[in-house]
């Protein structure tokens, strides 16, 4: 089947099998910044924003995302003009292997959109769908705190 997604601000037509997940369709189309870690909605490596909401793309049929707006981590910024959340992850040492990072960055971004000044427990709650085995999460939580401060102009 075929569907149009608006992805990172651009409308694109995708063709895919009727039982394909959004994750598979996007990765096959070159959006490799979306990572696959478990295919069961448990690790968060594949999260994207779908109509503004953080979701596991491995748990969504591409067919049910037709016509929707998708944002990946590359839609937030790139190495030339990174988003403050991306910079905060870099500056806090929150990136080790980096495989969970696109998902973590999107989870943090999604939190800060709704709650610009979260406390630590709100930050941890917002990251509860994203597994990381390298950092022990300490510096990731710091990074979200730093990003929040910077985005409010305090940093």
């Amino acid at each position: 089947m075929e569907a149009v997604f608006r992805i990172n601000g651009k409308e694109k037509t995708f063709s895919f099998d009727s039982d394909a997940t959004l994750l598979a369709v996007l990765r096959d189309s070159g959006y490799t910044e979306i990572k696959e870690g478990c295919r069961e909605g448990a690790c968060g490596a594949c999260v994207v924003l779908l109509d503004g909401l953080l979701i596991n793309s491995c748990q969504v049929f591409a067919a049910s995302a037709a016509g929707k707006e998708i944002i990946t981590v590359r839609g937030l910024g790139d190495v030339h003009s990174p988003h403050p959340v991306q910079s905060a992850f870099v500056d806090s040492g929150a990136v080790q292997c980096g495989y969970c990072t696109p998902g973590m960055v999107l989870a943090a971004y999604s939190l800060l959109q709704k709650n610009p000044d979260p406390d630590d427990s709100e930050i941890k709650r917002a990251l509860d769908g994203n597994l990381c085995r390298c950092t022990g999460y300490v510096k990731i939580v710091e990074a979200v705190r730093l990003a929040a401060g910077r985005m409010q102009g305090n940093g």
Partner: peptide, 12 residues
């Protein structure tokens, strides 16, 4: 519900 599943799953 706040304790259920995870943030991305609660969105679905």
């Amino acid at each position: 519900l706040k304790a259920a599943a995870s943030t991305p799953l609660r969105n679905r």
